[in-house]
Computed example of a mutant assay.
Amino acid sequence: MITKNKLFEILSSPHVSEKSNRLLKKSNVIVLKVLISSTKSEIKLAIQKLFSVNIKCINTVLVKGKVKKHNRYNVYRKNWKKAYVTLQKGQKLDFINHVL
C-alpha cells in the first residue's frame, strides 16, 4: 500500500519543453519528472489516484546528468527519470495551460 505522501514523492514536476508541449497537443502525452527509483506501475497508480484519469501506457527514460563548466571547474548535474504518460481518448490533464 502506497501512502499519499509517497504518491507526491513519486511525481516531482511536469517537464516543460517544446517537445512535451507538442506531444501534449498532438497525441495527448504528458511528460513528467519522476523519482529515479519509481517503477511504471507506481507512476501509473500515483497519477490515477491524484488526478483521476485513465492511462493508456507509460514509457520511462533515464536521463543522464550533463557535465557543465563553471569558471574553471566541472560541475556534474544529477541523473533523473522522465515518464511519458499517454492518456486514453477523452481524458484531459494539461499542466501548461492549467486544465485539469
Rank of each mutant, 00 (worst) to 15 (best):
F51A: 04
N79C: 05
H15P: 01
K81H: 10
H15Y: 10
W80E: 04
K68R: 14
K6T: 13
V16L: 13
L87K: 05
K19M: 12
L11R: 00
K49Q: 10
L45M: 15
N59D: 10
P14D: 03
K81R: 10
I43N: 01
K64E: 07
V16D: 04
L62M: 15
L24Q: 11
K25S: 04
K82T: 01
C57D: 11
V31H: 00
I55T: 02
N5I: 13
S17N: 00
V53Q: 01
S52E: 05
Q91T: 05
K25E: 08
N74E: 14
Q88R: 03
L35H: 08
K19Y: 02
N71Y: 09
A46R: 02
F51V: 03
L87Y: 00
Q88K: 09
K89Q: 12
L45S: 15
L23M: 09
S20R: 03
A46N: 01
F95S: 01
N97W: 11
H15W: 05
K40N: 12
I55L: 08
V16N: 08
S12W: 01
N28Y: 11
A46K: 00
N5L: 12
R22A: 15
L24R: 09
L24D: 07
L32S: 04
K89V: 10
I36P: 04
K26E: 15
L45T: 11
K66L: 04
R72P: 07
V31A: 06
S41V: 14
I30P: 00
V99F: 11
